[in-house]
Simulated scan of single mutants.
Amino acid sequence: MSSSRVLFVGESFTNIGLNLKGFSVYTTGGYEEGGKPLIDALGDAGFEVDYIRNHEVTSRFPAEPEALAAYDAVILSDVGADTFLLHPDTLFKSRIRPNPLASIASYVAGGGGFLMVGGYMSFSGIAGSACYPNTVIADILPVTMMTGDDRIERPEGVRPEPVAEHPALEPVDGRWPTFLGYQRLVARREGEVLLKAGGDPFLVVGRHGKGRTAAFASDCSPHWGTPEFVGWQGYGPFWGRLVGWLAGRS
């Protein structure tokens, strides 16, 4: 099987902590990435993965659809729409620039694959701050996004269940692992629901123009994606099959 190229964007964050000890106050900082399990799984499935971290989007993301054509699939995971739309040249200098999200839509219409993975900065996001319903991404996804905060937090755990047969869902032994939450989405009429959780769509696939699209409503890694999910024997095969379908392998 020949290698396919995937562009994976997101799954990184910097944190700042405020510490109070009596009259003394000091700050701490750190940096973390959550995409390694999925990146490793795709590598094991034969994909060549280019990884763009959240803070690298403005400098590294290929804004023109012609540049995206080098990839068989594009994955966005936990990276808000403003990260693409508010380039410093636009935000601070009022300069006109290409719209990277419109480039993704054109890329998919021309035959590319596209996947959005859930998280606090995916779909509508926490407090609605991911903002994708207001973008052209809303036109290409096989789901309709909620307005406002779309999170369904399930600290007691929830297990998705297959509801359809599809190349992305070859039979696996046992049940799907537990998740700690997901995002409430509504499948479009032309979308195909493959997994449900709590009565809500959990994985939906569809087509846009000549391309294929998918929406996975939960995390690919903690916190919603539990260690049980990341360590599941079906983790790698599932992502490999899903992205393989998006890339036209099946």
Rank of each mutant, 00 (worst) to 15 (best):
201 P>T: 03
148 G>W: 11
193 V>K: 04
153 E>A: 10
141 L>Q: 02
204 V>Q: 11
48 E>G: 00
122 S>Q: 04
48 E>Q: 13
144 T>S: 15
48 E>T: 15
20 L>V: 10
208 H>T: 09
87 H>C: 03
158 V>R: 09
59 S>D: 15
75 I>M: 13
89 D>K: 15
158 V>S: 09
93 K>A: 14
173 D>T: 07
52 I>W: 11
166 H>S: 03
232 W>I: 03
156 E>R: 08
249 R>C: 11
189 R>I: 13
192 E>C: 05
187 A>K: 06
85 L>C: 06
33 E>F: 00
81 A>N: 05
35 G>D: 06
101 L>A: 08
110 G>P: 04
159 R>I: 12
75 I>D: 04
45 A>E: 02
12 S>I: 06
174 G>C: 07
61 F>E: 03
39 I>D: 01
207 R>E: 12
49 V>C: 10
37 P>L: 09
143 V>T: 11
12 S>V: 10
238 F>E: 06
97 R>Q: 05
98 P>R: 12
203 L>F: 03
169 L>E: 01
136 V>Q: 14
68 L>D: 07
129 S>Y: 10
103 S>Y: 00
138 A>S: 14
80 G>M: 09
93 K>P: 02
5 R>G: 02
229 F>G: 01
55 H>Y: 11
19 N>P: 00
111 G>V: 11
69 A>E: 07
108 V>E: 10
210 K>N: 15
83 T>Y: 01
174 G>P: 06
167 P>Y: 10
